[in-house]
Amino acid sequence: MTTPLAAIQSVRLDDENSTLIILDQTLLPNEKVFLHLSTMEDVWEAIYHLKVRGAPAIGIAAAYGAYLGVKASKEEDFDAFAAEFEKVKAYLASARPTAVNLFWALNRMEERLRKEAQKSVKDIKQALKDEAERIREEDEQVCLSIGEHALSLLEPGWGLLTHCNAGTIATAKYGTALAPIYLGEEKGYDFKVYADETRPLLQGARLTAWELQEAGVDVTLICDNMASIVMKEGKVQAVLVGCDRVAANGDTANKIGTSGVAILAKHYGVPFYVCAPLSTVDLTCPSGDDIPIELRKEEEITAAWYEKPMAPENVKAYNPAFDVTDHELITAIITEKGIAYAPFEKSLAELMNK
């Protein structure tokens, strides 16, 4: 990946200063600001307010946050230290209810804690740091593998549509749904990318359009309600999206508006691909009906991104952050260990057991 974006780590640890450093995605594309988070309240607020966002990046931030949350602990007894860790874990887990990577990363950190139970608390702290670093390093390789599998389904010169942001700034590196675009750019595939602006928080306009343009990719920004016409006009040969959770039956939760894109793609005969690390697959969740959907503040629709309010004062607004795409609308789910096709109950389970 030759893009300068490859050098950007949106989440990293400054252990010497006991600080989590994140790229504040709420300020893009106008400002590139790295925040230095030193308290659990800072980390929670960054996750909740989408300063760090993207399922993998949330997981990485949570892992580092869990380590930093107990790094300064004075406890020497394992049970007391573990109880302190549990409080940090529960607090961070409350930031975002839908993104399974948040819970996956925190559970993995707890598993490492329990595994090291016979060691000194000092050694356990080092183990927690090592585990958080491993989560970040593994995500980079996972994204590269997803990109390679996804690229095998695409052809040079294709028009690709994406929704929300599943790029390098949402992960350790490369991204999920954008990874094949970056790899294709290296190989001269000359993709033409259409990026939905992704209302109401405009992650597509602010983030996807920004990072693809920075990388020299041919990207065109469209309003969300323009996805239909670009498909009808034959400008789109495939849709690539990320996701925050995959249910056992293949239903996927992603940023609000994704299910509408899937319905359009089905109508126009455009393949709809979900790029998902296996850490987002939740086999304990039978279907999309069982995925909790985060409801966010009404102000994000009525006023948050405008100089003046763009809706009548006190009007009611409904603001779910995610929707669920039915598995019947999904052509394939692309993971780091391979590509899952229907029936997803079988193919996803097989990939999880690899």
Rank of each mutant, 00 (worst) to 15 (best):
164 C>D: 04
165 N>V: 03
166 A>W: 09
167 G>W: 04
172 A>L: 08
173 K>H: 10
174 Y>K: 01
175 G>H: 02
176 T>V: 13
177 A>M: 03
178 L>T: 04
179 A>T: 01
180 P>K: 07
181 I>S: 04
181 I>N: 03
183 L>C: 04
183 L>F: 08
184 G>Y: 00
184 G>R: 03
185 E>F: 01
185 E>D: 11
186 E>L: 13
187 K>H: 05
187 K>S: 00
188 G>I: 11
188 G>T: 12
190 D>R: 08
190 D>W: 01
194 Y>I: 05
195 A>L: 06
196 D>R: 04
196 D>L: 14
196 D>E: 11
197 E>I: 08
197 E>H: 03
201 L>N: 05
202 L>M: 14
204 G>W: 03
204 G>Y: 08
208 T>K: 01
210 W>Y: 15
212 L>N: 06
216 G>L: 12
217 V>K: 03
219 V>A: 10
220 T>F: 14
222 I>T: 03
222 I>K: 06
223 C>T: 15
223 C>F: 10
224 D>L: 07
225 N>F: 14
225 N>M: 07
227 A>F: 06
230 V>F: 06
232 K>H: 10
234 G>D: 11
237 Q>G: 05
238 A>R: 06
240 L>W: 06
241 V>G: 06
241 V>T: 15
241 V>F: 12
242 G>A: 08
242 G>L: 09
243 C>G: 14
244 D>I: 14
244 D>K: 07
246 V>H: 13
247 A>K: 12
247 A>I: 11
249 N>S: 11
252 T>L: 10
253 A>M: 07
253 A>D: 10
254 N>Y: 14
254 N>G: 12
255 K>L: 08
260 G>M: 14
263 I>H: 07
264 L>S: 02
265 A>G: 05
266 K>Q: 15
267 H>K: 11
268 Y>T: 09
268 Y>H: 15
270 V>E: 04
270 V>H: 00
272 F>A: 08
272 F>I: 08
274 V>A: 13
275 C>M: 07
276 A>M: 11
277 P>G: 06
277 P>C: 09
279 S>Q: 06
279 S>D: 09
281 V>F: 13
282 D>P: 00
283 L>F: 09
283 L>Y: 00
284 T>F: 01
284 T>C: 00
284 T>K: 11
285 C>P: 03
285 C>H: 04
286 P>W: 01
286 P>S: 09
288 G>F: 03
291 I>V: 15
295 L>D: 11
296 R>N: 05
297 K>N: 15
298 E>V: 10
299 E>D: 14
299 E>N: 10
302 T>I: 13
303 A>E: 15
305 W>N: 14
305 W>D: 13
